[in-house]
């Protein structure tokens, strides 16, 4: 292939599909025009040098956005990225540590045990941090691509008025960062537990030899069915946290989104609790044998436990919905931000 073809092909590679052919033809014509008659390889070399790097030329044709996360979100992205990476790494560390303590290796002084623990801690913190960074980035890319209005829009076309100024800091409408971060930590802990280490949620019974037998609460295989839904719910939750983080103030749209999220969460929880297969049968038999009772009794205990837990979840969620809506509606600016 000659130089000109190679040049044009390279430019085309960086262009959107629909203009490739036409730009290619035009560029070819232009290059031919720039060359003298009976041109030599050197002439071609000179003309292509004049046109410059194919990537730069293609960029000139392509005026669409070329970034994943643009200037409007960049600062918030970096600051949130740091927090989330720290939280995720800490959660992953915590879970690994707890798992080790619960499993209680027979002899901590045995060669390699501590080294193994340290290696596992480092790798789990790293994996946790990567997961956090990945998901935060995904959420920001979605924000950037969809141009979702989240109350922080210096570069959007909307005409700014002084009404858009954030209220003074003692405003009831202000979302507390601490609260957001706390809820974020809780979400990450639970998702990470269910997703990565569901076997940690278990009964640990110390045997005669000092090594505990572990009976998991959940049927891990069955749990896999719910993992996609759990991840989606956690992602929506993470998206809402990021929204809160950026917007800094409540608004009605946010309150409604949160209410919808809470309802989705309740539905998922109720479905999971109602699923008889999700509880590990061994857990019930082990429970019965420890408490020296029948399997049926142990099974009723578990059922009652599920109901109490379910009721707790529903109450917390409904409380959250009500509180958010009331707080938002009470404030003078609350309804004003709704489009």
């Amino acid at each position: 292939m000659n130089l000109i073809e190679r040049y044009i092909d390279t430019v085309k590679k960086y262009l959107p599909e629909e203009i490739r052919e036409d730009v290619g033809l035009e560029l070819n014509a232009n290059i031919m025009d720039m060359l003298p008659e009976n041109y030599t390889e050197d002439d071609v070399f000179q003309v292509l040098t004049e046109l410059g790097s194919p990537k730069n030329l293609a960029d000139e044709y392509n005026t669409k956005k070329k970034y994943l996360i643009g200037p409007a979100y960049y600062d918030k992205y970096i600051s949130l990225l740091k927090s989330v990476i720290a939280i995720c790494a800490a959660v992953a560390l915590g879970i690994t540590l707890i798992e080790w303590i619960l499993k209680a290796p027979a002899d901590w002084y045995e060669a390699g045990v501590v080294a193994n623990l340290i290696a596992e801690l480092i790798s789990s913190a790293f994996v946790g941090a990567m997961q956090g960074a990945f998901w935060v980035t995904i959420v920001f890319i979605i924000l950037e691509r969809t141009g979702v209005e989240i109350g922080f829009t210096p570069f959007k076309n909307k005409v700014w008025t002084p009404d858009d100024l954030p209220a003074i800091s003692d405003d009831k409408n202000k979302i507390s960062r601490g609260e957001t971060i706390f809820s974020m930590v809780m979400t990450i802990v639970f998702t990470a537990l269910l997703y990565f280490r569901p076997e940690v949620i278990a009964m640990y019974v110390k045997g005669d030899n000092g090594i505990p037998t572990v009976t998991t609460l959940l049927n891990i295989e069955r749990l896999q069915i719910y993992i996609p839904a759990i991840i989606i719910v956690a992602l929506i939750q993470l998206g809402i946290f990021i929204w809160k983080f950026i917007a800094e103030h409540r608004n009605l749209l946010m309150a409604i989104t949160e209410a919808a999220y809470n309802i989705a969460f309740i539905v998922l929880m109720v479905v999971m609790l109602a699923d008889q297969g999700l509880i590990n049968n061994e857990f019930i038999t082990t429970l019965a044998s420890i408490m020296k009772t029948t399997v049926d009794t142990a099974s009723t205990w578990v059922e009652t436990g599920k109901k109490v837990f379910g009721a707790f979840v529903v109450i917390v969620c409904v409380w959250d919905i009500a509180e958010t809506l009331i707080r938002t509606l009470k404030s003078p600016k609350g309804s004003g931000n709704m489009k």
């Binding site: 203009i19 730009v23 035009e26 560029l27 232009n30 720039m34 004049e50 046109l51 410059g52 730069n56 030329l57 000139e60 044709y61 005026t63």
Partner: peptide, 11 residues
Amino acid sequence: EAGTLYPLLRR
């Protein structure tokens, strides 16, 4: 420059 002009025409 040619590299500036051609894309500009298209835009």
